[in-house]
Amino acid sequence: MVEADIIPSARHALITGAGSGIGAAIAQTLAQNGCRLTLCGRSQERLDKQAQLLRALVPDAAIHTVAVDVGDEGSVAGAIEQAHQQFGSVNILVNNAGQAQSQSFLRTDAALWQQMLQVNLTGTYHMMHAVLPQMLAAATSGTPGRIINIASTAGLMGYAYVSAYVAAKHGVVGLTKALAIELANKNITVNALCPGYTETDIVQEAVRNIVTKTAQTEAQARTVLTARNPQQRFVQPDEVAQSVWWLCAPGSGAINGQAIAIDGGEQAG
């Protein structure tokens, strides 16, 4: 039996940080490919708005929304239980929720350090730990599991003034590789996608910070952020979303434990 024969057309995909940006693009791509969706994020209002937009684009989409704080173990447990009650076992987990705050290392206090680790790294741990038992059960029954962690090129290299974020994203990449090996013979793959600067709210905030701190124009600030990308542009959320689907689609089972850069060639330089 080939992989294409055993993958149902309506797998249950849970996406964190799904209310906007990369998460919203991933949700749209997975909905268009027949997945049932649980959209998670901090704002119920934003999630419901995103669900409404998705239903307009994909009228037959099956969508559930639930507010969650990925840094809180109890909040995550409650959200996963709701998701399971709605659509059954989660087969695809996309850990997209994240935060980035810029600060020099000497001004990075313990509170900022813990916040960056709690959201970006511990949140990823909480989600995987809560979803894995049901994903394993479904994988044993024949439905492959896919865990995709949205890391960053900051998980592959260093960037100045975001040391806590860099440390957290390096942790996500390491956790991805460790769990991929542990689950390699369990019909579940674990991979990380590492986008460069992507056209999202986080990048808009970075642009505003540069403008405020350096008196550069917005256009100049955007040029600064795209300078390391050989294509001289921001990555688009849909480009990340298409890579997520590629890792979920039939024939992807041998791709495991990878940290794949989506950066226009930045890591090649």
Rank of each mutant, 00 (worst) to 15 (best):
L37I: 11
R42I: 00
H12V: 04
Q44H: 14
L37P: 10
G17E: 00
Q32V: 05
I7R: 13
S43A: 05
R42H: 04
I7S: 10
G41F: 01
A10N: 15
T38C: 12
R11T: 08
T16R: 06
R46Y: 08
G17A: 07
R36G: 11
G23C: 10
N33E: 03
G34M: 04
L39V: 05
D5R: 12
L39K: 00
L14F: 01
I6L: 12
T16Q: 06
G23L: 07
R36I: 06
E45L: 10
T29A: 04
P8A: 10
S20D: 12
R46E: 08
D5L: 15
T16F: 03
I7G: 09
P8E: 04
L14G: 02
A24Y: 01
A13V: 09
R42C: 01
Q32C: 10
A31N: 04
I26L: 03
S43H: 04
P8M: 09
A31C: 09
G19A: 02
I15Q: 01
A31F: 10
I6G: 10
E45Q: 14
R42T: 05
I7W: 11
G17K: 05
T29P: 02
L39W: 02
Q32R: 09
H12P: 09
N33V: 00
T29F: 05
I26C: 03
G41N: 04
H12W: 04
G23N: 08
L30T: 07
I15D: 03
A31P: 02
I15A: 05
A13N: 11
E45N: 14
I6R: 11
E45K: 14
L37A: 02
G17I: 01
A18F: 14
R42W: 00
G34I: 02
S9P: 06
L39Q: 00
G23T: 03
Q28K: 13
C40S: 06
C40V: 11
E45G: 09
I15R: 00
L37M: 08
C35A: 14
L37N: 04
E45Y: 05
T16A: 08
